[in-house]
Simulated assay, not measured.
Amino acid sequence: MRLPFLFRHALLPLFAALLLGACHGKDDSAQPGGSTPEAALQASVDLLKAGDFNGLWKHALPPADYANMRADWQLQQRDAQPISAEDRARFNEAMQKLTGPDAENKLYAELQPKLATMEQQYKDQLPVLISVGDAMLKSAVAQSRTLSETQKTQAGGVLDVLLPWARQTPWFDQARAKQAVGVAVATARKLDLKSPEQMRTMDFDTTMGKYATAYGGLKQLLAIYGLSVDDTLNSVKLTPVSSSNGHAVVRIDYTLLGKPLSTESKLMQENGRWYSEDLLQNARQSHQQLQQAATASAPASAGSAVTKD
């Protein structure tokens, strides 16, 4: 499902902090923010591992910003393109295949001969294709206006670890493919999406539930091919670097696919609670842009109505 405007500008910084922000302490995750920078990150990780996306946003943003996110939710549909008949047909066909009777066996029977053919055709080319994809991703990260320089460096380190994994992973393995098909079918059935229009009309809470289901399926798929998100989260060690005047820096050491990595995270304090500085700035920028766009479109809509009269 398409990420709305607000998520495109704020979700990536959130996950950059969350995937690299675990520590082994306890904090009241029912409250927004954390009593310390480390506690704020730990509570976010606990919510992420639980798949509680609504609780995650409620914790990761101050109350007023969380309220703005919910109030802005429908504004992200403003620029949505109409769904074409072809898009609707493709969606219906895909969902029927994924959720129909005996979908697992039917899909695997269809996939099995294709895997053998693809392995013969692309086995030697795949490392090159993966390297090209890696270069494109790194270029996109470098040109991003959403990520900070620290996050760009962090993302580059992660990609350097993921590239060897992607090259060595047996993507055409029949047993793994069969497991992956099972996960995809189970996830599609849990999502229970009846039409592409449904994805655009869901309220905030319903959408967060769908994101949680999709995220759970994605974690299972990655684990099948040797990448455990939870293992990475559990490996993180945090070391406070500095804290003064309501701003803090935390050093983050973690392991991804057996490779040690490190970065730093900036947090800021509001009303006695700590939040990710990058996330908060991006969430507020997204809210401001949405409000400005809505205000700009209002006179145009009113003018159109007067003209029609």
Rank of each mutant, 00 (worst) to 15 (best):
residue 154 Q to W: 07
residue 161 V to I: 14
residue 120 Q to R: 14
residue 111 L to Q: 07
residue 154 Q to P: 05
residue 163 L to N: 00
residue 103 A to F: 07
residue 119 E to V: 05
residue 89 A to S: 10
residue 146 T to Y: 09
residue 86 E to T: 11
residue 164 P to G: 15
residue 174 Q to P: 00
residue 140 A to G: 11
residue 123 K to C: 06
residue 106 K to P: 00
residue 107 L to P: 02
residue 123 K to L: 14
residue 107 L to A: 09
residue 118 M to C: 10
residue 103 A to L: 09
residue 113 P to Y: 05
residue 82 P to H: 06
residue 117 T to Y: 04
residue 87 D to L: 02
residue 104 E to Q: 14
residue 182 G to E: 09
residue 119 E to H: 13
residue 166 A to P: 03
residue 185 V to F: 04
residue 126 L to Y: 00
residue 96 Q to E: 04
residue 99 T to M: 05
residue 134 D to I: 04
residue 80 A to E: 15
residue 162 L to V: 08
residue 82 P to N: 06
residue 152 K to R: 13
residue 131 S to F: 01
residue 145 R to D: 13
residue 114 K to G: 06
residue 84 S to G: 13
residue 93 E to Y: 03
residue 120 Q to A: 15
residue 77 Q to K: 10
residue 128 V to D: 10
residue 142 A to W: 02
residue 184 A to I: 12
residue 91 F to W: 05
residue 171 W to I: 15
residue 183 V to R: 05
residue 113 P to K: 08
residue 88 R to A: 13
residue 142 A to T: 11
residue 140 A to P: 01
residue 157 G to L: 12
residue 167 R to I: 03
residue 173 D to K: 11
residue 170 P to F: 06
residue 121 Q to V: 08
residue 112 Q to G: 10
residue 164 P to T: 10
residue 84 S to R: 07
residue 171 W to E: 03
residue 111 L to K: 07
residue 166 A to R: 08
residue 182 G to H: 09
residue 144 S to C: 13
residue 144 S to I: 05
residue 158 V to H: 01
residue 110 E to R: 06
residue 130 I to Q: 02
residue 137 L to P: 00
residue 101 P to D: 07
residue 177 A to I: 04
residue 178 K to P: 04
residue 134 D to V: 04
residue 96 Q to D: 03
residue 183 V to N: 01
residue 123 K to S: 14
residue 148 S to Q: 07
residue 117 T to E: 13
residue 161 V to E: 10
residue 150 T to N: 13
residue 148 S to H: 07
residue 80 A to M: 09
residue 122 Y to F: 14
residue 151 Q to I: 00
residue 168 Q to M: 12
residue 183 V to C: 04
residue 176 R to Q: 14
residue 169 T to F: 06
residue 168 Q to E: 15
residue 158 V to G: 03
residue 129 L to E: 04
residue 96 Q to Y: 00
residue 85 A to Y: 00
residue 125 Q to S: 14
residue 114 K to W: 05
residue 157 G to R: 06
residue 121 Q to G: 05
residue 157 G to N: 14
residue 146 T to H: 03
residue 176 R to D: 05
residue 116 A to M: 12
residue 124 D to P: 00
residue 118 M to H: 02
residue 174 Q to S: 13
residue 146 T to P: 01
residue 87 D to I: 00
residue 86 E to M: 06
residue 149 E to S: 15
residue 134 D to G: 11
residue 185 V to K: 01
residue 179 Q to I: 06
residue 177 A to D: 04
residue 159 L to G: 04
residue 181 V to T: 03
residue 101 P to G: 10
residue 116 A to S: 12
residue 161 V to Y: 10
residue 164 P to V: 07
residue 168 Q to G: 13
residue 115 L to M: 10
residue 181 V to F: 07
residue 83 I to T: 08
residue 110 E to T: 07
residue 157 G to E: 08
residue 141 V to C: 12
residue 149 E to T: 13
residue 89 A to R: 08
residue 77 Q to E: 14
residue 131 S to Y: 01
residue 174 Q to T: 08
residue 108 Y to S: 11
residue 135 A to P: 00
residue 80 A to L: 12
residue 117 T to P: 01
